[in-house]
């Protein structure tokens, strides 16, 4: 029960973010929804790491470090998300300078 409710919470956050990413026109709103999706995944990784057994049985303190694999994944996800937001906002501001718009539906040179 305790593991399942964290996983369900992560799935709900992922679903909300999925809806926002696919349905919003404003590019910054899309980025914010993406952050919500990342957070759902992070909750899932940490909860699985906290409640389930890895393939190496934690006998000694040295072997038991693999219990924290989900934490390592979360650290990497947070780092990549930070890089992605910095680049994404830079691209949004560059588009805004040239086109005076931040709607993703207005940036369609490649589709013509």
């Amino acid at each position: 029960m305790t593991l399942e409710r964290f996983l369900i919470l992560g799935a709900i956050l992922f679903g909300i973010g999925l809806y926002g990413v696919l349905s919003k026109k404003h590019a910054i709103a899309v980025l914010m929804s993406l952050e919500i999706m990342f957070n759902g995944v992070n909750i899932t990784a940490v909860a699985l790491s906290r409640y389930t057994v890895p393939y190496t049985v934690p006998d000694t303190l040295e072997a038991a470090r693999f219990l924290l694999t989900g934490h390592v994944f979360t650290v990497f996800i947070i780092t990549v998300a930070a890089a992605e937001v910095a680049l994404g906002l830079a691209i949004i501001i560059a588009i805004y300078r040239t086109r005076q718009s931040v709607l993703v539906t207005d940036a369609k040179e490649l589709s013509r």
């Binding site: 696919l22 349905s23 919003k24 709103a29």
Partner: peptide
């Protein structure tokens, strides 16, 4: 903060997920 016109199918997809 406008949405696309096809937000209803997207919402259905998210709920199914």
């Amino acid at each position: 903060n406008p949405s696309h016109s096809f937000r209803l199918p997207v919402a259905i997809v998210a709920i199914i997920f």
